[in-house]
Computed example of a mutant assay.
Amino acid sequence: MERDELVRLLSTEGLALLDSLPPYSSKADVVKTVADLRKQGHDPGLVAAVLSQSRLRSKARAKFGEFADRMLFTEPGLEQATRLRVAALHAGRFARAGLRHVADLGCGIGGDALAMAAVDLEVTAAEADEVTAAVAAFNLTPFPRVHVLHALAEDVSLGGIDAAWLDPARRTTSGGTTTRLADAGDYSPALDFAFGLAERMPVGVKLGPGTDRDVVPDGAEAQWVSVDGDVVELVVWTGALARAGIGRAALVIRGDAAHELVAPSDAEDAPAGPLGDFLYEPDGAVIRARLIGDLARSMGAWMLSEGIAYLTGDREVDTPFARGFRVIERLPADERSLRRALQERGVGTLEIKKRGVDVDPAELRTRLKLKGDGSATIVLTREEGRHVAILVERL
């Protein structure tokens, strides 16, 4: 969003027009809305600005629920923003640690600061980008104990502040295109600054879930978070925000329920063994946290093959930390025989899951020339090092 676009939005006419729009839907409806607004005499620039915000509000409901309908967004700010239910867990950790005044350094559109304010924390929120800082100030207006600054994280005075939260910018926008930064050294603020603050105060740093684990400082708690099966972030907690004896954590959120698997450090993998009656696919947060071995032992299961994140066992276990499948039968692993086996079973719709094999499921599905009214799920992987195709059904 450009500065001029934001100025139009923040006018009395702009905000009233935005709030009067019907929910964003199809492009055809948008074309009609544009025509109607232009016919009413609204400025073309304002029409474009409010429709862009209407689209972002619709997209933001997945993260912010009904709160999205009274917020403003930038495209990159929304992409990086923490889901509100996850931000609430972050805020709760600060509150439980007795840290009453938090600096949100690189606050983006203000999602985490909003959650902190909701549990009555005082927040000094800083954002380097002028437009994004103004958007954050708008979103945080209902909270008198939140102060939004247009400033670099490095320039914020931390006197009287108890702890810091940082969500370094991991994307850059140029010419309307947003690109994810591959090198953690290019984040803003830099990780050296973020973790340097840990020598002065408790700090929480939100990173992408695929961030190189080598950046996690010694003695910190690394917590990977998944929401409804999607791994959304890695948070590094230090000082009073890090829990004693916990170095690795997998927080799994499904619906309204949250479950956590924790350990002092990476877990040793369980031994590998032959395929049992059930197959389990650990949640991505468990895999990222390298707690598969601990999960296997808690389930009475074992690895299907060394270094591959599938577990197997002879009893059905209901766990939030893995998706379970009942093993129906082994199918031939070579493509020609697999095609014949699926044709014999009348499989026309096929879900293909795979780990440890070099195959593109979409291309394989085309080559299998599926026909029939049946549907099935197969798992392509390794069993004690050997390629296997396993016909399964979800528990």
Results as ranks from 00 to 15, higher is better:
7 V>Y: 04
9 L>V: 02
13 E>M: 03
15 L>P: 06
17 L>I: 01
18 L>F: 03
20 S>W: 00
21 L>I: 01
22 P>R: 08
34 V>W: 00
38 R>P: 06
45 G>H: 05
50 V>S: 13
51 L>S: 06
63 K>G: 06
70 R>G: 04
87 A>L: 12
89 L>G: 03
96 R>A: 15
99 L>K: 12
99 L>S: 11
110 G>Q: 12
114 L>S: 06
115 A>G: 02
115 A>R: 05
128 A>T: 07
144 P>A: 05
146 V>L: 01
147 H>M: 06
148 V>P: 10
149 L>I: 01
152 L>E: 13
157 S>F: 01
160 G>W: 12
163 A>Q: 03
166 L>K: 08
171 R>M: 07
175 G>P: 12
179 T>M: 06
180 R>Y: 09
181 L>T: 11
187 Y>H: 11
189 P>Y: 04
189 P>C: 09
192 D>T: 15
192 D>I: 13
195 F>K: 14
198 A>V: 04
199 E>D: 12
203 V>T: 12
203 V>L: 05
205 V>F: 02
209 P>E: 12
215 V>N: 12
217 P>G: 09
220 A>S: 07
221 E>R: 03
222 A>I: 05
226 S>R: 13
227 V>H: 02
229 G>W: 15
234 L>A: 07
239 G>H: 10
239 G>A: 08
240 A>F: 08
247 G>F: 00
252 V>C: 00
256 D>Q: 09
259 H>Q: 08
267 A>K: 00
269 D>M: 12
275 L>T: 15
275 L>C: 13
277 D>V: 12
281 E>F: 02
288 R>H: 14
299 M>Y: 09
314 D>C: 05
317 V>K: 03
318 D>L: 11
323 R>W: 10
324 G>N: 01
326 R>D: 13
326 R>Y: 03
334 D>E: 14
335 E>D: 14
344 E>G: 14
346 G>P: 15
357 V>E: 07
358 D>P: 00
361 P>L: 14
367 R>P: 09
367 R>E: 10
368 L>D: 10
374 G>V: 00
374 G>E: 13
375 S>T: 07
378 I>F: 00
379 V>R: 11
381 T>V: 06
382 R>H: 05
382 R>G: 01
